[in-house]
């Protein structure tokens, strides 16, 4: 409710930052995910957020993530994780400087796959490839930008796997994008 710039002591519980300082989520919304350090670090689930403090060690231990730039992205239950990741990757695919191979080709390839996933045109193979490509980029590039593009993908498809699988299933069932197969 209160986006802004906050200076807090290291070790502050993440939930305190969210609820006490920033005024919590909009009424009636539930927390879905937080990216704690810019957009390039692994995403955190609500369960992880509850355990984590705002310091390097805790975030890394609980969620395998980082404080990064300190840019704090909060997503509530109205957020579609496939759309969110596609949006992030559009940025990375566009910003890759194109110097070294994995990032140059890989970031755009991942974006293409995500676009198809978002539009209900992807298959299980694409999901496997997506995760694979992220692994093949991470820590194999000249600079850290490659890893920055890879970490959101790796964490999103792992921690919010259901949403990605649902998109594939709805695509297979021939449903229009955004509609899920009834369980």
């Amino acid at each position: 409710m209160k986006p802004g710039v906050y200076e807090i002591p290291l070790g502050t519980p993440m939930m305190d930052l969210l609820n006490k300082w920033c005024g919590g989520l909009r009424p009636g919304r539930k927390l879905k995910a937080i990216i704690p350090g810019g957009s390039s670090v692994p995403v955190m689930t609500p369960a992880e957020v509850e355990q984590a403090n705002m310091d390097y060690e805790s975030i890394n231990k609980v969620a395998g993530s980082y404080l990064g730039s300190g840019g704090f992205i909060v997503m509530d239950d109205t957020t579609d994780m496939v759309d969110a990741l596609t949006n992030l990757l559009r940025f990375y695919a566009h910003e890759s400087c194109g110097q070294c191979t994995p990032c140059r080709e890989g970031s755009a390839w991942m974006y293409n796959i995500l676009c198809r996933l978002r539009d209900g045109l992807a298959t299980e193979d694409d999901l496997v490839a997506l995760r694979d490509l992220a692994d093949n980029i991470h820590s194999r590039t000249i600079c850290f930008f490659g890893a920055s593009a890879a970490m959101p993908v790796q964490s999103f498809v792992t921690k919010f796997r259901d949403e990605f699988v649902a998109r594939v299933e709805s695509a297979r069932a021939g449903l229009p994008a955004g509609l899920a197969v009834a369980k």
Binding site: E95, S96, R104, W109
Partner: peptide, 9 residues
């Protein structure tokens, strides 16, 4: 030179 960036390099 290499022109442009990303996969359009």
């Amino acid at each position: 030179r290499l022109f442009n960036r990303s996969n359009q390099t």
